[in-house]
Design a protein around this nucleic acid. Structure first.
Length: 519
RNA sequence: CGCGGGAUGGAGAAGUCAGGUAUCUCGUCAGGCUCAUAACCUGAAGACCGUAGGUUCAAAUCCUACUCCCGCAACCA
């Protein structure tokens, strides 16, 4: 089983383009692996607990539960709108999750992996948080934004992270495929070196935070962030067995892939989560791989609420369509790196690669078949060098596509697909089927050329299906081959269209976007 | 000496780990085609690959130094 997860989104605001990117990436990878014949389980969801949610809910005068429900609905509505289809949905207020978290906490507590300790530090009453040296200004004082700052003592529970960091360091150093892309690994190892002897605070006293999961062994505390959110990756696939959840052993068969943003690699996933799994007894062979993606920036700057340059993905989907948005978000970024969000490029890429190249290829090819051969596809006569070159291009580019997609490099997979489309357009230009049609003697040759184009469209529809499933269905419908979308990658051999098959009159699958981009 | 990422034709990127004629998309210019979504195809101009050194027969790629940009508190993928 290929088990894929995303980070769970914090329900303290509306979804933005980064949330959408991560989920689309996961959705595309899920669909691709299924196309490759693998069994896949895709889990995503929302992180609903914590101080920020509690504060925002109070500000709005509603209960945290009510607030979280509203925000969660916005997320799930967006996933529906942009075609993100998951098998499991994680909400951290779910009773099944709470049960699992508490059972893990009890277990670790009973094995002395969790202990109580007094912490002394500077506390901001206004912000309701402890301050660190990082919060000091240049003069070494805490600024007025913190309000009254007092030094207080507080008891809390700690996880013995330090028991596991030596193992983790060794594990990461010898593993080349745990952190993807590889260039993120050094950052993680550096951070680890600095934290070798440090343990992790995992609780908050209830006077400060009530919106969380109660510690089973001390009801004056709730658990804070890590032992809540991260555990979703196992709680929602039945780590604590539950009839309404999948069987854990059949989901977590080897190494799952967690798709996360670069901000939560260090320390959350790269250190805490691995250490937690190790404490729970997961072997090296069962440790997750982290696929770390970059950011969508705005003119080279980070997108943030404070800069006011947030982009609403739902709005984009309404304006340009879900296809254009999905295509752009996996096409114009290299997995792991940052990219600049640019609505003009979104329109440009849709119009050139989908409308002009692939869409138009489909349209011109099928239209000629309808007009010149009554829509009937037949292999025609002997193959020429041009025909075999086209078939070879399909083989080569399908291989390149698979290689790129296996490495989660969606943009390069699409490049390979486009290379074949361009090859087909060049082929059409050289073969000139519209000329061949002028003389009946060329009937066989004409049939061969049109068959090569139609066959190519069929292959392209399948290859495109992980990225744009709806469009793939439309392409298959035009070919009058609905079962095309049930094929697996290994079925992609020359001859998908049976001899004598009749196709439909085409219509543009990707109508050009003529919207003027505001700004 | 904090950590990491980046600097490649007008714009955006790939290529850098495993050195060997500089790649792709958009844009610009000139031509062609007419089956097609004013789509498609061909050709051209345009980059001494951030700077300065070094290694090498050969450097965007390896080494050294430097300059500039972006992240690393919060919102947050």
């Amino acid at each position: 089983m290929f088990f894929l997860t995303t980070a769970i989104d914090y329900t303290n605001g509306s979804p933005h383009i980064g949330h959408a990117y991560e989920k689309i990436l996961a959705d595309v990878i899920t669909r691709y692996r299924r196309l490759a014949g693998e069994e896949v389980y895709f889990l995503t969801g929302v992180d609903q607990h914590g101080q920020k949610v509690q504060q925002t809910a109070e500000k709005e005068g509603i209960s945290p539960a009510q607030y979280v429900k509203t925000v969660t609905a916005r997320f799930s509505a967006l996933w529906k709108k942009i075609g993100v289809e998951y098998d499991g949905w994680a909400e951290t207020t779910d009773l099944r999750h709470i049960t699992c978290v508490q059972s893990i906490l009890s277990d670790l507590h009973s094995r002395d992996q969790i202990y109580k300790k007094t912490y002394r530090g500077f506390y901001s009453v206004r912000q309701e948080q402890f301050l660190t040296d990082r919060d000091r200004d240049e003069a070494g004082n805490f600024g007025t934004e913190w309000g009254e700052v007092t030094e207080i003592e507080e008891e809390n529970y700690y996880f013995k992270l330090s028991d596991h960091t030596p193992w983790l360091r060794e594990f990461l150093q010898k593993s080349d495929d745990t952190i993807l892309p590889a260039f993120r690994k050094s950052e993680l190892i550096n951070a680890l070196e600095k934290n070798l002897g440090v343990d992790l605070c995992i609780s908050r006293p209830k006077e400060r935070l009530t919106w969380g999961i109660e510690l089973p062994f001390d009801t004056d505390f709730v658990t804070y962030v890590w032992f809540d959110a991260l555990i979703n990756y196992i709680s929602f696939v039945g780590y604590t067995p539950d009839p309404t959840l999948p069987d854990f052993e059949s989901i977590w068969t080897d190494r799952p892939v967690h798709i996360i943003g670069k901000d939560i690699l260090v320390p959350a996933h790269g250190i805490y989560w691995f250490a937690m799994l190790h404490a729970l007894g997961f072997s090296d062979e069962k440790m997750p791989q982290l696929l770390v993606h970059g950011w969508w920036n705005r003119s080279g700057e980070k997108m943030s609420k404070s800069l006011g340059n947030i982009i609403d993905p739902a709005e984009l989907a309404d304006t340009f369509g879900s296809d254009a948005l999905r295509y752009y978000l996996v096409r114009d970024i290299h997995t792991g790196k940052d990219s600049n969000f640019d609505a003009e490029r979104l329109v440009m890429l849709f119009n050139t690669e989908l409308a002009n190249e692939l869409g138009n290829l489909c349209n011109r090819a099928l239209n000629m078949s309808v007009r010149f051969t009554e829509g009937v596809i037949t292999p025609g006569g002997l193959l020429t060098a041009d025909d075999t070159a086209l078939q070879q291009s399909l083989i080569d580019n399908t291989a390149a596509y698979r290689k790129a997609m296996d490495n989660h490099e969606i943009s390069m997979g699409l490049e390979a697909l486009n290379r074949h489309v361009v090859h087909c357009n060049q082929y059409a230009e050289r073969m000139k089927p519209w000329e061949l049609n002028k003389n009946v003697e060329n009937k066989n040759r004409l049939a061969t050329v049109l068959q090569h184009l139609a066959e190519s469209v069929a292959h392209c529809a399948v290859l495109l299906s992980p990225i744009l499933p709806d469009a793939a269905v439309k392409l298959a419908a035009q070919l009058n081959l609905a079962k095309l979308t049930d094929l697996k990658l290994d079925d992609l051999k020359w001859g998908l269209i049976p001899n004598g098959h009749e196709i439909e009159k085409p219509f543009p699958v990707f109508p050009r976007i003529e919207v003027k981009v505001a700004e």
